[in-house]
């Protein structure tokens, strides 16, 4: 039995609402869990990129990419192992304002973890940290003693280490 790895699927598409649904249908049909999903524009005007993080065998990842790639509005699709990509996620944390007043360490905690404060309101403040999932998770653990009112983490944005995978387009 082949082992499951984390794969990053990079899917370059025409800017079309429906294509996201088509990609998800292909993943759902094979019952592949989506760990993270991110959609944004790419460096090429009019071309969108989807980054989908899945856990599967390499064989499944290859088959999925081929099935995604054949969709009419998909320009190119690729699969990469985590190590072949550079990636980040952004996490936001809402903690009570009194944590700032009462918690002597929170200022240094934020600085030491390369987080930053985005907003301070009378009742709460919002802190931002960028990093890998483990890092944003660790930071959450550290904030927990102060009370976390709300937490959100983005999908993964990633670029491959190899050069110019979209060269086929130009």
């Amino acid at each position: 039995m082949e082992t499951n790895n984390k794969y990053s699927l990079s899917v370059f598409t025409e800017n079309h609402l429906a294509i996201l649904q088509r990609v998800l249908i292909i993943l759902n049909r094979r019952r592949v869990n989506i760990e993270s999903l991110h959609s944004s524009e790419s460096e090429v005007s009019g071309v969108h990129r989807l980054t989908v993080i899945i856990r599967s065998t390499e064989e499944t990842a290859i088959k999925l990419v081929k099935q995604i790639d054949k969709q009419v509005e998909v320009i190119r699709a690729f699969h990469h192992l985590e190590d072949d990509t550079v990636f980040q996620e952004i996490a936001l944390y809402k903690v009570p304002s009194n944590a700032v007043v009462n918690g002597i360490n929170i200022g240094s905690l934020i600085r030491d973890n390369y987080a930053r404060i985005l907003a301070i309101e009378s009742d709460f403040m919002i802190t931002e940290k960028t990093g890998h999932q483990e890092e944003t998770h660790d930071f959450m653990k550290k904030l927990e003693p102060y009370g976390i009112l709300e937490f959100a983490r983005s999908g993964r944005v990633s670029l491959t280490k190899q050069l110019a995978q979209m060269s086929a387009l130009n």
Partner: peptide, 13 residues
């Protein structure tokens, strides 16, 4: 019908 037919069409719009 776009949603319903999506898994069974080569393309739809």
């Amino acid at each position: 019908v776009i949603g319903i037919s999506m898994p069974v069409t080569k393309w739809n719009c």
